[in-house]
Design a protein around this nucleic acid. Structure first.
Lengths: 143, 143
DNA sequence: CGTTTAAATTAGCATCAACTAACTTTAAAG
DNA sequence: CTTTAAAGTTAGTTGATGCTAATTTAAACG
């Protein structure tokens, strides 16, 4: 009966780490703090937890890498983010608001509901989504 | 810059009070506790807060009535609930899951996003929605 | 009446997830 | 070298929201 057990905030952090690693060489605590607008201590404590939960590793330089488990959650959350954002944009929501709302919605969807929303999204795009392809293609380079 | 300032839990309580009053003579704390699966003390404390915020009144029998302000929020939240639930069902989500997820989604949508989702819902139903009509029509009988 | 029971309340606690203040550590700049 | 600045950490706080245990209130019952 797990699979539903990731803290909402953890999903958010892991997703941010994935997004940052997709366009930066390295990801540090401070980068996450800047991206999310959180204080350094908040991120520091969160990273400690993610480390203890085996979601990330942190090297001696403070560079953060997603573990396999962490990557799984990050990709899942980011996929939701992309799909929800695009569906909302298709419905006429402004890109900015769509992104904001997707950030919140992505954490409260059951798997069933997300699956149906994704079906809807893919159907209206002929199954083509470069953004989703980019996620599946992404592999974090090993240290 | 208010309008976004209702606590998520307050929205939930107010919505429940509206739902209960729509098919019961009176609404008590215990009814809310049973409906939401919360403990009596949790509801008691929440009702105290809603009372202090002017969202509800409680008579000497413990019967709870929404104030005008409370009703506004309750109707708004319930409307979101109805619309989201139905949209999800239209997308193929099971009725049960749709309701569950709507309960969470309804609290995190910006006004803009909800407006677009509502447009989408109404468009696919030719602007006809008995459920939404029932909400607007509803007037709580005064004590 | 006095006892039982249902509802409500009070007090205290737990968890989550953010914050500020105050270090420490390290490395770069002068 | 020493000073400064950036990054990270620790400790303690806050606010939202739930909980349990114990108490109060009041109606209902024998």
């Amino acid at each position: 009966m797990k699979a539903y057990e990731t803290h909402e905030s953890s999903e958010n952090y892991l997703e941010s780490i994935l997004m940052l690693s997709m366009d930066h060489q390295v990801v540090r605590s401070i980068d996450i703090a800047n991206m999310l607008g959180f204080s350094k201590p908040s991120v520091s404590v969160a990273m400690k937890r993610l480390r203890e939960e085996g979601m990330i590793t942190v090297d001696s330089n403070g560079y953060i890498t997603l573990t396999e488990d962490g990557m799984k959650i990050a990709k899942g959350t980011y996929e939701k983010h992309i799909v929800i954002t695009n569906v909302l944009i298709d419905l006429g929501v402004s890109a900015y608001t769509a992104g904001q709302d997707a950030c919140r919605i992505e954490h409260v969807l059951s798997p069933e509901t997300f699956a149906r929303i994704k079906d809807f999204y893919l159907k209206s795009h002929d199954g083509v989504s470069p953004e989703l392809d980019a996620i599946s293609a992404y592999e974090q380079r090993k240290p």
